[in-house]
Design a protein around this nucleic acid. Sequence first.
DNA 1: GTCATGATATGATAATTATCATATCGTTAT
DNA 2: ATAACGATATGATAATTATCATATCATGAC
Lengths: 228, 228
Amino acid sequence: MDSSCTCEHCELRELFVVNLDEKSMDIICSGKLEKDYLAGETIIKEGTRIQDFSYLKSGLVKLFRSDQSGKEQIITIAKPMDYVSLLSVFSNERYNYSVTALEDSVTCNLKMEDIKSLINTNGKLALNLLGKMSKVADTLILESLEIRKKHLRGRVAYLLIYFSKTVFYADEFELPLTRKEMAEYVGMTTENVIRTLSEFRRDGILKIYGKTIHIANMESLQSISEFG
Amino acid sequence: MDSSCTCEHCELRELFVVNLDEKSMDIICSGKLEKDYLAGETIIKEGTRIQDFSYLKSGLVKLFRSDQSGKEQIITIAKPMDYVSLLSVFSNERYNYSVTALEDSVTCNLKMEDIKSLINTNGKLALNLLGKMSKVADTLILESLEIRKKHLRGRVAYLLIYFSKTVFYADEFELPLTRKEMAEYVGMTTENVIRTLSEFRRDGILKIYGKTIHIANMESLQSISEFG
DNA sequence: GTCATGATATGATAATTATCATATCGTTAT
DNA sequence: ATAACGATATGATAATTATCATATCATGAC
């Protein structure tokens, strides 16, 4: 066993759920590569050839698209143990989105070829990946339909609740997005994100200290999100 | 070989791309069930348990969600050889969307269990399905981002081009959606769909005879879609 | 045939959202 | 330290879109 490989102790088992046999684990591990990124650094650039199958070990990243005029749309945010390259990966030669670190982050990159050959011999792994991809796609599609139905207040409320309930598990947290990025996520203008946040502050729903948000009235925020 | 099974001649081979061995083919085929639906009929109802893995043999169907107030949002339209149950299928117990026939349609239903056990033993099939799902998810997600960027005129133009170029392969076609459904697809009101169509007619871009649409000026329509 | 209903259609108005202008604040580069 | 820049912030205004009212038309129910 390669002494530089610490897979037995790493999260690969958790990630793939099914226990791979020693040989498969060795193949995967020997090609495994961890990379560190500082907040703001580019992890994947749209148009790059897809060679790795990567997941996020720690930190927080955004997946987004840019149009010709440079305007960006955030597709989703990935948390630790989420796949960074799941969309596109089995159907495309190249990434059709970019990935940037929102916080200092570490990715774990496996070789796409290794994964593909493993899938060929390990049906459980295949089903597991199908399940993961199905879930990610479902979530993204339903989320975009939900957001589309909401007014501006509802969209901002939705986003704050998202961070509070599914990313930070706290009523007070440090926003990992600028107001501009929040706007790019939920499809509105930066000015209106700012205005909406100010409005929530004036209504006593939020306390805002720069990027630090404290949700003072979660009930109100939730009813605004569901729409009011 | 079961004489009622005509799989050798059917499109299963095309669909799965990889040639299944006789035994696998038999398993799939013996559980195969074709169903006919008239335009307007419900094929899948949101909340139903997922038991089949089905694709569309002929016709045209819409996948959509309904909210508590009965308002609907169309997720996508499936054409022949598209999977009707691909989203959700590997991650959910129940459908979180409904499917209705837009035209008289025929579905071919395979047993989910058979597919799953085949995936276990056939890596190529697994990779093929991963590819298909990846592509569908990608398309849906990017489409929703594209539509979100457009103004009303661009959205209607986009939809008409979609039907012309990828569904009917013709400049003149019979719209399979009501104006209300068009609105539900691209996220606007019925009135504004109608108004926009009228505007295109007045500008000489379209000729409209009820549900029959003739695109008289594709260049204009395309530049409107890309936005202008 | 007549009625009821939903689809299509159009206009007037209201609500929502974006754009533009401007200002402050904090951070980084020099 | 100062300048430059981007992020945050707010107001005024314009553009976009939805809502409401109303009318016609087609279709299916009876």
